[in-house]
């Protein structure tokens, strides 16, 4: 796919210095939360509005600015329409974790949901990695369980992942999560890593009954 970012930069570069053009673009992207390379319907206008604000700072001449805006509009409209309309991710996805092969599925599904939600590449990988850890935890310690992926649409858009199992449970959570603990298979590392990757981490476990780990990652 042609790089829309680069094309916008070229247009902006015709009216301002390269470094300002980059600044205006990254500014507009961060403001509108739109990825130019993955435009959804309506995104083009949101991005254009921000770009115009940026151009107003640096392109003083009205006619020039208008030309610049028109060029970008044409570009974004053409690039925007080649993509299919976005699919809203399902609010809740259940992934049964019954064996080792389900780990790959679970993190793949998690990444897909994040992608549809519009998470950045880095965030998608973080969530997928966390899901991988949680699923592996289930496989290694409880044989089977379930992972639920829920999209959060409240004040803060994001994703919640809950891993449940009816395994032996964790006797001493604080020990597992401490820096000293390092299990033979690396569970401590996996869970601590997950906690570091996520914005919220909540671990509940009853020995003999099972474990529930609830993590959240927000978009902003």
């Amino acid at each position: 796919m042609s790089d829309t970012r680069q094309q916008i930069l070229e247009i902006l570069g015709g009216h301002m210095s390269a470094i300002l053009a980059r600044s205006v673009l990254s500014l507009s992207i961060s403001w509108s939360k739109v990825d130019p390379n993955r435009l959804r319907p309506g995104d083009d206008n949101r991005l254009l509005a921000e770009l115009e604000k940026g151009c107003r700072l640096y392109v003083r001449d009205d006619t020039l600015r208008q030309t610049c805006m028109e060029q970008m509009q044409t570009l974004l409209t053409i690039n925007g329409h080649t993509l299919p309309p976005p699919e809203e991710p399902p609010r809740l996805t259940r992934v049964p974790v019954l064996g080792e092969s389900d780990i790959v599925d679970a993190r793949g599904i998690g990444r897909l949901v994040c992608n549809k939600l519009g998470f950045s590449g880095a965030m998608q990988i973080k969530v997928a990695t966390a899901i991988s850890e949680l699923a592996r935890n289930i496989v290694q310690y409880a044989d089977k369980g379930e992972i639920t992926i829920t999209t959060l649409n409240g004040n803060r858009r994001g994703i919640e992942v809950v891993a449940r199992d009816e395994g032996p449970g964790i006797a001493d959570i604080s020990l597992v999560m401490s820096d000293r603990y390092n299990s033979r298979t690396g569970m401590g590392i996996g869970l601590k890593g997950t906690r570091n990757l996520m914005d919220e981490f909540d671990l509940k476990s009853t020995p003999g009954k099972g474990t529930e780990i609830r993590v959240r990652k927000y978009m902003d």
């Binding site: 993190r107 997928a128 990695t129 991988s132 850890e133 592996r136 890593g193």
Partner: peptide, 10 residues
């Protein structure tokens, strides 16, 4: 590679 979790990196 899609992700690299603790198991894969190890």
């Amino acid at each position: 590679i899609d992700v690299m979790d603790s198991y894969i990196s190890r």
